[in-house]
């Protein structure tokens, strides 16, 4: 089982009593598969990694156009409070989602963005590390734009330690139709490869384009 919350410093009281958890926000616009991504992530943790995960999604009119988001709490112990208070990880798939949720990202947190759709125009909380992935572009190159969320999940899997690679793959395959298994597997693989290359290069996100594995998807 991966070490949870290993990247993070222990937050200040009062929530220090529950620090063995990771709060994740996944956000974007309707049609990007944001909710499914969070669902798969939660499933990977709760079913295949055997830890605890609670996923909640924001319903309502905003889910049919504007910002749409899901919250996921992953923990060693049963999750009590089901919502994100301060996100350890924000996955932003759209500019609007980024703008809306970046204030809840905690200091030292992790920001994952859709490289082509999110421009980081505002100050981030201190010590936030940012990673970007051209998820939509990669998905299009693989043949179907709809797997952009799976590309993002692969990328997420590579740059965070929330769920194991194996659990992620099992979760993806058990959540998509059998006829789409191969495509989703490729999407996940592509995301992982780009993520790992990015991480290993130790380059800042803005310079990841220089990495051959990354650049290959951009032309």
């Amino acid at each position: 089982m991966p070490e949870l919350a290993s990247r993070r410093e222990v937050a200040a009281a009062p929530d220090a009593v529950e620090r063995e958890l990771t709060e994740i926000r996944v956000a974007g616009f309707g049609g990007q598969g944001v909710i499914l991504a969070a669902q798969i992530l939660g499933k990977a943790a709760a079913i295949f990694d055997g830890v605890h995960a609670t996923m909640t999604q924001n319903f309502g009119p905003e889910a049919r156009g504007g910002a749409c988001s899901a919250q996921l709490i992953v923990a060693r112990h049963p999750v009590l409070y089901p919502y994100v208070t301060k996100a350890d990880i924000l996955v932003a798939m759209s500019q609007e989602a980024f703008g809306k949720f970046v204030p809840e990202l905690k200091q030292g947190g992790l920001l994952l963005v859709e490289r082509d759709l999110v421009r980081i125009q505002q100050d981030l909380p201190e010590r936030v590390r940012t990673y970007g992935v051209p998820a939509t572009r990669i998905a299009e190159k693989l043949g179907k734009r709809v797997v952009q969320n799976i590309v993002m999940l692969g990328f997420f899997g590579a740059v965070t330690e929330v769920v194991s690679r194996k659990a992620m793959e099992q979760a993806v395959l058990s959540s998509v139709p059998a006829s789409m298994a191969a495509l989703n597997k490729d999407a996940l693989q592509a995301g992982y490869e780009v993520g790992r290359a990015c991480l290993e290069s130790r380059l800042p996100a803005s310079e990841c384009d220089q990495i051959p594995e990354y650049a290959a998807w951009l032309d």
Binding site: G42, A46, I47, T54, M55, V79
Partner: peptide
């Protein structure tokens, strides 16, 4: 609503 829409194991 929270319990209804909350996804867990």
């Amino acid at each position: 609503e929270v319990v209804g829409h909350m996804t867990e194991r």
